[in-house]
Design a protein around this nucleic acid. Structure first.
Lengths: 119, 119
DNA sequence: TCAGATAGGGACAAATTTATCCCTATTGAC
DNA sequence: GTCAATAGGGATAAATTTGTCCCTATCTGA
């Protein structure tokens, strides 16, 4: 486990949300869990660009920040279901508008990003 | 200049916004510029936790993605003013709700973050 | 009987982001 | 005269995130 060497700044709402939501895949994980993809293997299939490892790490962080919870079924092969906590659910409208903004500006953004792949 | 070695995924709105807004200080930079702190040195004072270097780098990325623009006055000592483009302005309501969410859950988030400083 | 699915941790490497320090040039304050 | 302020790039180091590979254990299907 990586141990951080610098302390986070927690001055304002943006700092706070940054600490819990700053992670490449966290918003997608919350979104897909909200959409009903609750098992780790399902989430991995929904996000093929991320390694299994990172998704586990980020799910664990989301869990430790109580945005998601998990149910572990004592069966073999293992089965786990993630779910959104109330705190996590309250983020869904925000993630929705963020995604909408991205969709609305899809073409423009795509062009800008590709133009600047290497600055 | 760092050259990326992997290509970004641009499948959905969340991916797109991630490319232009994923950077530790970018939302704060946009927010403070929106609030009227438009000169680099002012922004650096507003965000003391970030090094001057990173703020320059992230401002440059915001500029290349056309969320901000800049006016360079040919004077000495140098003077520069950043401003939000229309695209950048359209993000302000989103940044506002993100910050509000953080403020609303301030105590809860602060406690959770501190509890998990080292996981 | 061997491969694959299931969940996830450990060790280590690679990629990426952030920080530190130095350098340019000019003006005004002390 | 020297120092701070102004904007920002280059080189390099440190911190952090992400990826790769291996290991646990058991059941199902070919």
């Amino acid at each position: 486990m990586y141990e951080r060497k610098t302390l986070p700044e927690l001055n304002c709402g943006l700092d706070l949300i940054g600490e819990v939501l700053y992670g490449k895949w966290k918003m997608r994980l919350l979104w897909f869990i909200h959409e009903g993809f609750q098992r780790p293997s399902e989430l991995q299939r929904k996000i093929p660009g991320a390694s299994r490892r990172v998704l586990n790490v980020q799910l664990k962080e989301l869990e430790s920040h109580e945005l998601v919870g998990k149910v572990i079924y004592p069966v073999v092969p293992p089965k786990v279901d993630y779910y959104l906590t109330d705190l996590g659910k309250s983020l869904i409208p925000i993630i929705r508008v963020i995604g909408q903004w991205g969709d609305q500006h899809d073409q423009q953004l795509r062009a800008l990003i590709l133009k600047n792949i290497n600055l």
